[in-house]
Write a protein that binds this DNA or RNA. Structure first.
Lengths: 138, 138
DNA sequence: CCGTATCCGGATGGATACTG
DNA sequence: CAGTATCCATCCGGATACGG
């Protein structure tokens, strides 16, 4: 499963990293760390994916991701809203209904995110194989 | 409100998500979740970036990422090794020296990862602004 | 229907001290 | 130099119950 086509971009990361070094690499002020932790947390990516198709109501998202608690769903949506990746619209119906949708900024994340997801799907077999091999050697 | 420039890639994610649904979306067996959590954890991305330029010794990595404990450095390197993203070579010198480097699989991750990092760098200003705005409104 | 509040177990990760 | 072992604080996130 060689994929050297992708490694043409790789020098970039080494260079950027060197730049971060020069800036002090304070993890608490590093925007990259900030954003990536967002991506890596338990629910953000799934929710962004759920909103990728268009606006959804709270309950709809919850139905689409059954194993998230309301607590975590709200919290993650709030974080997305806070960071300007999603918006929240309240319709004063009764009972109230709330609709979430991605902002342009949020949608601009879909490209890089999809690339990463595609990589995961392409290579999870190789990763599984590596794990099995690793366990066998120890 | 449409932002068609960036959203050309976006239908993919919505479709994939729908597929995951059909497969049951068991988080513990979802390869995507598995990989993304890897990317999102505190140190993996930094270490991969540090190895992007070529093989490095344990101490060299540690010097390049000063604020990681040896414990976490080892643990993260082990995980990378386990997943087939990095290799570990021991040179039986005295004192011993150990060299880590990315595998082809690991290097193939650099492309998607760099795209995500580039997004983070492009948009962290917008995110910061959104946060300030959000705090102001509450 | 949408959200909040509280409690609590387990994972994460830092500090420190010790080996070969 | 490279790694291990132990202890301990913090945080993430689930369960539950309640409110508008």
């Amino acid at each position: 499963m060689r994929d050297d086509a992708d490694s043409r971009n790789s020098p970039d990361l080494a260079e950027r990293f060197a730049d971060w070094q020069d800036l002090g690499l304070d993890p608490h002020r590093c925007p990259v760390r900030d954003v990536l932790s967002h991506v890596g947390d338990k629910w953000t990516t799934l929710i962004v994916a759920a909103l990728a198709g268009g606006p959804r109501r709270f309950g709809a998202i919850h139905r689409v991701i059954p194993d998230i608690s309301k607590r975590m769903l709200i919290q993650t949506l709030r974080d997305l809203e806070r960071d300007g990746l999603a918006t929240r619209r309240v319709f004063p119906t009764s009972p109230p209904s709330v609709e979430y949708s991605l902002t342009p900024l949020g949608r601009s994340l879909l490209g890089p995110l999809t690339a990463l997801v595609a990589w995961a799907e392409r290579n999870h077999a190789a990763i599984d194989a590596a794990r099995t091999r690793f366990r066998a050697e120890t």
